[in-house]
Nucleic acid binder design. Structure first.
Length: 201
DNA sequence: CCATTGATCGTCT
DNA sequence: GACGATCAATGGT
């Protein structure tokens, strides 16, 4: 219970943009045989499914994106660039394929384990900075897809943490995409050192 | 600080 | 067969 209670399914069952913003300050926590790693989120992005040209779900369901078309509160972990895994939480009602990409955070528990999964010499500020780095710290890969984040007994959980005040939230364009490049659905905690780089395609 | 580039392979056209 | 919801290393300003 160190980081508050687990967020309920209703938290994720609403507009994906609102969820992305409200996830800042919350804590993702994974538990494996190796131990627990917890990350306080400082950067997220919203992807609005079939309505959003930048979403993997834009052209309708495929075997890969099937989870996103299911009920909210489950994880979608995808493989990209031949070497990286990235994690999303499915949002909105069943049938609407929206999801929030977890882009960056601060490791607040399990620092040693997180570092061993990345690089032994990784600085704290870059440990979970970037979606693939964040997923790596948590030990996530494709086998985690479909898991719930809304149960206290799930190996992957999202805890309430401490919500971030509106005055400290910055909205801007999403990173690394080639369509809908100007839609401001990337949310960061202003001035936080753990936010990832702002390079665009 | 900024810009460029190679690595590497699943997914969909 | 092309293209990624990326990262780290490199080299210049």
């Amino acid at each position: 219970m160190a980081h508050g209670r687990v967020l309920p399914t209703s938290f994720f069952d609403r507009d994906v943009v609102d969820v992305a913003r409200d996830l800042l300050g919350r804590v993702v926590e994974s538990e494996t045989e190796e131990g627990v790693v917890a990350v306080r989120l400082v950067e997220t992005e919203a992807y609005a499914g079939e309505d959003d040209p930048a979403s993997h779900a834009w052209r309708g369901p495929t075997p890969r994106t099937a989870v996103m078309f299911g009920p909210p509160g489950h994880v979608y972990v995808y493989f990209t660039y031949g070497m990286h895994w990235c994690a999303n939480v499915v949002c909105g009602p069943d049938g609407r394929a929206s999801a929030v990409l977890l882009r960056a955070g601060e490791v607040v528990e399990g620092l040693g384990l997180a570092r061993s999964r990345r690089r032994p010499d990784a600085a704290d500020r870059i440990l979970a900075s970037g979606p693939a780095n964040l997923a790596s710290c948590l030990g996530l890969d494709g086998t985690w897809t479909g898991r719930r984040v809304t149960s206290p007994r799930s190996p992957l959980r999202l805890r309430a943490g401490t919500p971030v005040d509106d005055s400290a939230v910055v909205a801007g364009p999403r990173v690394g995409i080639t369509r809908a490049v100007d839609v401001p659905w990337r949310f960061t905690v202003a001035g936080d050192r753990h936010v990832s780089g702002t390079r665009r395609a």
